[in-house]
Structure formats: C-alpha cells, structure tokens
Design a binder for these strands. Sequence first.
RNA 1: GCCUUUGUAGCUCAGGGGUAGAGCACUUCCUUGGUAAGGAAGAGGUCCCGGGUUCAAUUCCCGGCAAAGGCUCCA
Length: 647
Amino acid sequence: MKINVTLPDGSVRQYEEGVSAMDVARSISEGLARNVLSAKVNGEVRDAGRPLPGDCTLQLLTWNDAEGKATLWHSSAHLMAEALEALYPGTKFGIGPPIENGFYYDVDFGDRAVGEGDFAAIEAKMKELAAKKEVFTRKEVSKADAIAYFTQKGDEYKLELLQDLPDGSITFYTQGDFTDLCRGPHLPDTSPIKAVKVLSMAGAYWRGDEKRKQLTRLYGITFPKQKELDDHLALLEEAKKRDHRKLGKELDLFTFSEKVGAGLPLWLPKGTALRERLINFMKNAQERDGYQQVATPHIGGKQLYVTSGHWEKYGKDSFRPITTPQEGEEFMLKPMNCPHHCEIFASRPRSYKDLPLRLAEFGTVYRYEQSGELHGLTRVRGFTQDDAHLFCRPDQVKEEFMKVIDLVLLVFRALSFEHYEAQISLRDQVDRSKYIGSEDNWNKAEQAIIEAAAERGLRTVVEYGEAAFYGPKLDFMVKDALGRRWQLGTIQVDYNLPERFELEYVGSDNGRHRPVMIHRAPFGSLERFIAVLIEHTAGKFPLWLTPEQAIVLPISDKFVDKAQAVTELLKTHDIRASVDERNEKIGRKIRDAELAKVPFMLIIGEKEAEAGTVSVREQAHGDLGAMTPVQFKELVDARIAQQMAGI
RNA sequence: GCCUUUGUAGCUCAGGGGUAGAGCACUUCCUUGGUAAGGAAGAGGUCCCGGGUUCAAUUCCCGGCAAAGGCUCCA
C-alpha cells in the first residue's frame, strides 16, 4: 500500500504505508532530517518518528517554527525532570509545559532545599543526559497501568492528573531512566538540545489554586546552538537595562514613596513634562477629530456605581467608600470615568443631530490591586487614562471605530512602534446568555468592528468569547524594540451603561432611542504607556517628546554667561534646553549628558563665543560641527519633521 | 491576597551581637581644562517600622510595611 503525502508547497509524494515524518524528511535531504524536531500532520503536531496515519498533509517542523521550538522546549522540560530525578531522588513532579520563551516544570522537592546555587549542577546534568542522545519513546498505556506506575513511584500529582484523563487516551514518554505522563509530542531524541540554562525558580500553586500546596517552579530555556542561548541571555540583559523602574529613576521621571503608598507613582518634573507633552499631543489630535474635553471630580457618590453596576461587580474588591462626617454619605474614589460622562450626556435632552457626542478627559482613576500584583508603572493603584466616551447611533459605530483606529495608529507612528497587531474580541459563538444588549445591535457592532479593522488594513486576530459582557472590543498589542508584546490601546462598544443610565436621544422620527457608547483609550493609561515607551526607547525618547532636547556646555566658567544667553534664545524658540554650569572639564560634562541621553549638546568656548556659534554634538553620534543657534533650531525642527513625517 | 528572596548614606552595594563602611552623587577649595570620569578636603545614616531575647540588637527571633520574582486577579 502506498500513501500520498501532501507537503506545504502543494507537492504530493508517495510513500510506503507506515512511513514516518522523519523518513519523509530523509527522503528529501539528510540536512533537513537533522533539523526536524516534530511534524504537523493534518494540522496536528506529532512526534516526527510516528508512522503517518495514511494520506495526509505534512509539515516538517524545525527550530524555525513556533511549534518546533515548543517541541524542543517540552522535551527539555522532561530532560530537566530527568536531571532533577537523578540529582534529587524522590522529587515529585507536577506539570512541565513549554511556554513562550522556554519551559518550566513544577516540582515538589519534599524537605530538600534546592536553590539558585544548584542551577549549575542541574544544567550540567541536563547537558550530560542530552549528549547521550536518549531516545524519546512513546507508549500508550491503560489507565490502570498508569495509576499503578505512579502509585509505585509515589507521585500524587501525576495520580491526580490521571484521574481526569479517560482510559485509552493515556500516553507515557520515556527517555533514559525517566518516564512521564505526557500527551507529547517530543523530539526523536535529546541530541538537538545543546545549550541549556535554568533561569529562575519561584513558587507556584498546584493547579493554580492558592488553597493547594505550593510547588517549586523551575524556569529554563534551551537552544540547539550555544550562540542562540548567548543571544537570548544578552536580550534578557538588555531588557534588564531598559527596565522602566531603573530608567525612570535614572532619568528623574518618577518615584514612589512608602508614605504615599504602594502603587501610587509620584511624577517628578521631567516625567511630568513628558506626560504633559503626551497629553497635549493627544488633545490636539482629539480636537481635530471633534472631541470635547470635560472634567469630572475624583470621587462620585456610591449610588453612581450602583447604577452603573460596578458596585455589584467590583465593590467588594475595591477601595472602600469614603464617607462624609456629618451625614454619612458614601463616595467612591472613581475607578473609571464613564459613569461621570454618562451623567454629562444625561444632563440635558440630546438630539440625533448632536451625535456622536465625544467626551474626553484625562481622568485619574483609582483601583484596588492586590499588593503582590503591583509592578512599577505597569500595575498601579492610581493612574490616568486618556479616556473618552463616544455616544453615537448604532449606524455610526463603524465610522467612529475607524476614526479611533486612525488615532491609535497615529500614536504608534509618532512614537515609532512599528510592529503591532489588534485583537477583535467577540461573543462566544454558542453561549450568548451572558451578554447584555440586543442580538441585532451586537451583530451590527461586531460586523462594524471587523469591517473597520479590515478597511484600515489592520493585522487582526479574532477571539470568540473574549468580548466583555457589555460589548465587543478591539485591543491593540505593540511589539517593542526587544520583541516583547504589550497591550496598549483599547476600543470597546458598550450597550450596558446607556441601558443602566437610561440614556436617550430624540431621533429624526421624534422617538426616543438609546445611544451606543464607545469607550476608547489610545494610550490606555499614561503610566503604563510611558513604562512601555521607556523600555521601547531605552529612555531615548523621540526629540519632540523628550523632556530636555539640548544642554549647553560651556568650556569653562568664562563662557557660562554666553551659554545662558544662548539657552534663553533657544527657549524663546521653543527648544527645551538648560546649561551645565558645573565647574567641570568639558569631557566630564559631555559624558554626563551622554548618559542622561540628552539628544543634543551645545558646546561653547572661545571660538564659538567670538563667532556667535555653538558646536553641536549629537547624543550617541558625535560632533556635527559649529552653527548658529538659529541654525540649530532649524536642525531640531527638521529632525522633528522627519520623525513626524507622514503623521 | 499567597509563596520565596530582599530592605544599611541621594544611588549601587560591602559588613556584622559591643550604635558602621566603599564607590558614585552632594558641598567647599584648587584647577579654567576643547568632545565620554582633573585634584583635595568635607558633610551626610532612627542600618525600613514595631515588639521580643540579651548586660548590649542595625545584626538573632516574631509581627508589620515596602520592593523583586512567581501564583491568582484585573471595570
């Protein structure tokens, strides 16, 4: 019997029945065979060594495929487990999956203390075992046999996992002396695992349940080549250098105070200047798009949130209400701006001619976050959203969406986030019971989002069941300079709040209609956005945004007056500049300005004082030569225009 | 919130049962130097906070608080 195997390029090859993906690879080339880690057969990832099931489509997976990497890392998790069992007999094993960058294994060392000091030994053992070219053997076992095996081994975690598995679908994988309950797939053998690093360890609850025992989670990563491991470690090192918490301190952007409280950032003058510039940028863009700024207080009556439904849903996990001393009235710190904005909408009768009504506010909101979850500026308890609510007719949703998409893309371009994608979150395809709003409106809105995204040429993924109960949404993800993904802006349709606040407008038919509300925040929150921006740019902000564009460096005390005069001149030309008046040598001043990432250094000595020029040095680039302050201003303008080209 | 680790000068960190150190930053003086660290002197600490053990605690123990890495959660 022959079988037909269809390869990704569409070609069909014939093989004897029982042929494996690896055999197919070898028939194409030995080099390819050496690189095959696993195979996708009819869309399912399987061991490369397993016989093909018959006529099928086949994609050979290598290190260049995400699934190939996952296979290598999954097998590496088993390899680490084998090493741990060899080094620490009696260790019990939870689960050990591959993850985005590497893998982990949750283990129970019992009373044994294993720490970071033991990583080197674990790595050495893993390399030793990998070099033995141990073969991964797949075996189907009955549930009874599987239970017997782990009972004898005394591994209660695996026994618990087995309970949930139906008989007949259970497979074991064995390499060397280690056998694990596993669905697979795995590498043919351990030899592709060449470079090994155990990265970190942390506690993790068994099955993510905080009431259950905490296991030790060991994170690791492996590569087929040492060079790739070195590169990866260098990337981690670079990420550490760019950590916004570290750079925020070094660049004097923000700080935290124990007295003020955890998760409550204090913005320093330079950081505030940065914020203000982002805010103005957004305000200008929004003004062009017909938004109107509003301002609302930081607190709101508890009843407001009872009406909005947030009290019921989040009240108990939120900051407690504050009360007035005499009357005992309850107020909440506002966790969002929308209820306030709904009341502005409701403050007077609205006509369909008024719509869309776009109310924008840089509103600072307060949300209780668990103490363990706070993290720099990316997870805080008080933050400012570039919030706006668009009240519109159902037929306006699509157009409004497109305009908001344009606004988000404008932000990405202005801040050179070149890689981004969007996620469209729609209703669960089957269960529609949990959603509020009419079937008709949902269909319209979902369709509107899909079409708007398509018309703007967005790269999107559609996720069913990810919509909020009150409406579908579109979230933007950017990739930063190190390839890390961050979720930033969001656009959400909301049928719930107009309903709860009984918002209405009078239509052309003179009847009352319910508006649709769109929440949107292109930055998301300023705090989070700035954190991402810091890490993306390594603290070297675009010229239009940076707090200090130029620093004037007098060669000696004699030229301080001249330097100050130049600085004043630059300031009148809207260039943000200051003077380094310290009694230091020029080399020192340059070094400090370089480290502070000030884009331009203007050096003034005898030559320049006489010629009425400044010598311009660009950060990280070097000397640009002498020019007049006005010429420098033109240079800055040209650079900004260049950065903002096409915006 | 839970687990592990950490908390010493503005910053980065060393030290250790007898109330403390380095480098950088800061102040003053010398130096007036041309594209990535000039020299000297000085000032600066409730050793996170509160209890306990001890003749004596910054050090050991307990409890808080904060930070880091995870887990769980996120309008």
